[in-house]
């Protein structure tokens, strides 16, 4: 594992931002850390980058305890965050010149191609750049040394769709053999790049799995009855957001298997006229899971 966290806790005063988070990022994967604002995504990343220390538990990054992440590991990590304070009075070119010597593996050719693709104004000071341009600048400073691990903390926040697509396009072009950890509250943003997804809510990991498995097990189910639909007394735990509207009962099956679903329907719901099972997109999956988590949290 490139990243592994074990029972990670982080408290800010009386507030626990992380509550026993255990997460793993396999080498070569692109893990999307999904969660609503305030779920603990940024805190997790800051612990991993040794920007803050965990209150309890531990994390390893590139095989090293996060508290001991040093120049050797940082030389292999690219980091892009919406909240990254860089020297405001340096131009893009000056800042690139500043960071370049820090990385022995810096590839000038790659830098040139990234700069061309991102169309960054080299002679402009950072303070004169738009938010989107700033994010591109951060990306341009994180890729040319071909990091083993790329950490992106809410990289799309505040970006307009055009810039977002451009950003993703460039990221995908350069991704190569990198392991990527990308935090976002919009799963749809990372649909094309993420191979794995971890869902975090109120400092706790709700689940983590590969995108393939996730999309395979999530289905939207509509059951049509001859008469008015009624919610069964014992709704299976895997059915989320069940609702009865007219003669249709709808829910999201989170453990989809055709035979198991048929069995459950047969045992719980009499007089079924028609069953319609549909695949759902990642945005819908996220919404369902988020609402369910909120409901459980009360």
């Amino acid at each position: 594992m490139i990243i592994q966290t074990n029972n990670l806790w982080k408290a800010y005063g009386r507030h626990d931002a992380l509550k026993g988070l255990s997460l793993s990022v396999p080498e070569g994967s692109a893990l999307a850390l999904i969660g609503a604002n305030g779920a603990g995504k940024t805190t997790t990343i800051k612990v991993l980058m040794n920007l803050i220390e965990p209150s309890r538990g531990n994390a390893t990054v590139l095989g090293v305890d996060s508290r001991k992440v040093s120049t050797r590991e940082l030389a292999q990590i690219g980091y892009v965050s919406e909240n990254q304070d860089m020297p405001e009075r340096l131009t893009v070119a000056q800042f690139l010149s500043h960071v370049r010597p820090m990385y022995p593996t810096w590839d000038l050719e790659l830098e040139r191609s990234i700069l061309t693709a991102l169309r960054l104004p080299l002679d402009r000071k950072r303070r004169d750049l738009s938010h989107g341009m700033r994010m591109k600048m951060a990306l341009a400073c994180a890729l040319p040394y071909r990091p083993k691990l790329l950490v992106l903390d809410e990289p799309f926040s505040g970006l307009d769709p055009l810039i977002r697509d451009e950003f993703m396009e460039n990221l995908l072009e350069q991704a190569g053999a990198m392991t990527i950890l990308i935090s976002t509250h919009e799963l749809a943003d990372v649909e094309n790049v993420a191979t794995h997804v971890a869902f975090i809510e109120q400092g706790q990991l709700l689940f983590q799995e590969s995108m393939n498995e996730l999309t395979k097990r999530m289905r939207e189910v509509h059951i049509r009855f001859a008469q008015t639909a009624v919610l069964p007394k014992d709704i299976p735990y895997s059915w989320l957001q069940p609702k009865a509207l007219g003669n249709v009962l709808s829910f999201v099956e989170t453990r989809f298997s055709e035979t198991e679903l048929s069995g459950k329907i047969a045992s719980l719901l009499p007089a079924v006229r028609e069953v319609d099972v549909q695949a759902i997109n990642l945005r819908a999956i996220f919404n369902v899971l988020a609402r369910d988590a909120q409901r459980k949290a009360g």
Binding site: K46, M49, L51, I52, T71, R72, L74, A75, I77, Y79, S81, N83, Q84, D85, M86, P87, V99, M102, Y103
Partner: peptide, 18 residues
Amino acid sequence: HQDPLPGDRQDWLIRPVK
């Protein structure tokens, strides 16, 4: 303050520099 120490948003803290 060109490279501040308190806080967790500074770029220089994630660069490979001692």
